[in-house]
Design a protein around this nucleic acid. Structure first.
Length: 470
RNA sequence: GGCGUGGUGGCAGAGUGGUCUAAUGCGCGGGAUUGCAAAUCCUGUUACCGUCGGUUCGAAUCCGACCCACGCCUCCA
């Protein structure tokens, strides 16, 4: 079975394989670093991470490029409001983003270029487009891409003749002096409110348009024509449409071969929005006592091409699933006398049927357009069999489980005891004695006290186990 | 208005012509265990698949209409 993904461009499943036969060029539109990314943003990044893992575990080498948008209207505006330099401001949020990525067990991209470090490349693309007569400078000094000059425009999103259909176009012609309202900015002329955040260019001081950075950086690191480009569904139009137009017009070659888009996350059945107060960040959820692994599980638990309804209740359910998987993994590895190889090690070969034992169907579900829910179903179905008949575990089962868990990027909770503070230990010991004395009232009182202090106690044969309540 | 996606049990979420009275997880019921719990284990939990028609020997799965929800339509993943 080959890895296939639904391609927005051709509107059908397409095999995921490198055109050059060696390495898959994979570009993801990264975050704009002006605040904490929210879980909706992370749904996209986590799905892209699973995509990469599945590709690598099926034997495809991946060059993963994900940009950081560290110069745009918002980063400039907010940094100015806070009286910080753009660099200082965006570094802060970039680091925050990296910490969240790590917590969510995202693989680090092969290259993570920042827009502001690639202004020269962007200017060079604009120059080419100017030479070809596809770009023009408007009266306010900005440079625009002439959509008329690119007849293919609209292929990805199916949007055509947009100026006739949008309401916003009817009003407000020409604040910038564009030839057509549909034309988009390649270079934005500097304005007084931009402060020092302007760069020199042949068209005067200003900054690159947002769409351009992805074209410039993907072409720089993956070449004019590469394999896969991905982002949130909202980016399909206009961002990706514009990327295709400017890139292909500039290089004369076809841009990304495949496109896959991740559908938006809903929270409690509604679109996330500031006014509804349901725009969770990872930190928000951690404050509520949830672990990043549970959040990751929640973000992949629905198929990426459908709305995912994210709820706190579901998050609680995931905790027990993760614990069950951890127990299963221990059981399987012990039975098969198997030590799970590292992720790196696992990606060194492709996966054939038979090699993954009973977990092969779960992996196949992932190869089939990243069907994570189906994969989880298959995973738990086999889990049930194994729990009932542990003696049937094989080497292949053990490898299969390891591969599937790595493909999903699931970090299993450790089953070992956490560090227990002395006073908690003392309470537990006292309770053990009370139980030995059959002093149930005292024993229950001590259990309540432990609970109040945030610890759960379980009685096991001849002793107890304590663990932090989460 | 244009383009697009989806409506499956208490919740989440697979399933795209027959083995579907529909996977899986959570929840819930019963039992074992426990001083009582928790955790764990066993066991049960019969959704007719938005509505109405149509095609077919046969549809959750195909077609049509309608209802509803959601997304994109200039910088929001």
């Amino acid at each position: 079975m080959k890895f296939e993904i639904y391609d927005t461009l051709s509107r059908r499943l397409q095999p995921v394989e490198p055109a050059n036969g060696k390495e898959l060029g994979f570009y993801c539109c990264g975050p704009t670093v002006y605040s904490s990314a929210h879980i909706g943003n992370f749904r996209t990044f986590v799905v892209q991470d699973v995509f990469r893992r599945v590709a690598e575990l099926s034997g495809v080498r991946v060059k993963h490029v994900r940009n950081i948008t560290n110069v745009d209207d918002k980063t400039i505006r907010v940094s100015m409001e806070q009286g910080k330099s753009l660099g200082e401001f965006t570094s802060f949020w970039t680091e925050k983003f990296h910490r969240d990525c790590e917590a969510l067990n995202l693989l680090i991209p092969t290259v993570e270029p920042g827009a502001v470090e690639h202004i020269a490349e962007q200017i060079s693309m604009i120059e080419t487009l100017m030479e070809k007569g596809i770009a023009y400078q408007a009266k306010d000094g900005s440079v625009f891409f002439r959509i008329e000059a690119f007849p293919e425009y609209g292929r990805l999103s199916g949007v055509k003749d947009r100026e006739l259909t949008t309401e916003t176009t009817a009003q407000a012609d020409d604040e910038y002096g564009r030839d057509s309202m549909a034309d988009f900015a390649l270079w934005k002329a500097g304005k007084p409110e931009d402060g020092d955040n302007v760069w020199e260019s042949p068209w005067g001081p200003g900054r690159p348009g947002w769409h351009l950075e992805c074209s410039a950086m993907s072409i720089k690191y993956l070449g004019p024509s590469f394999d896969v480009h991905s982002g949130g569904i909202d980016l399909a139009f206009p961002h990706h449409e514009n990327e295709i137009a400017q890139s292909e017009a500039c290089t004369g070659q076809s841009f990304s071969r495949l496109w896959f888009h991740v559908v938006h996350l809903m929270v409690d059945g509604k679109k996330m929005s500031k006014s509804l107060g349901n725009m969770y960040t990872l930190a928000d959820l951690q404050e509520k006592g949830f672990h990043p692994e549970e959040v990751r599980y929640g973000l992949i638990a629905g198929h990426y091409r459908k709305h995912l309804n994210f709820t706190l209740g579901a998050l609680e359910a995931h905790r027990s699933n993760l614990q069950r998987l951890a127990r299963l993994s221990d059981l399987v590895n012990a039975r098969a006398n198997f030590t799970p190889p590292s992720y790196r090690e696992l990606t060194k070969s492709s996966r054939e049927e038979g090699e993954l034992g009973r977990f092969y169907p779960a992996f196949v579900a992932l190869l089939d357009n990243l069907n994570v829910p189906k994969a989880l179903g298959e995973l738990f179905r086999v889990a049930g069999d194994i729990e009932k008949h542990p003696d049937t575990v094989t080497q292949e089962d053990a490898l299969g489980l390891a591969v599937v868990i790595e493909a999903l990027g699931i970090k299993l909770p450790t089953l070992e005891a956490a560090d227990i503070p002395e006073e908690i230990k003392a309470l537990a010991e006292t309770r053990l004695q009370a139980r030995a004395d059959k002093n149930w009232a005292e024993s229950d009182r001590l259990r309540d006290e432990l609970t109040q202090r945030g610890w759960a106690i379980k009685d096991v044969a001849g002793g107890y186990e304590v663990e932090p309540l989460s």
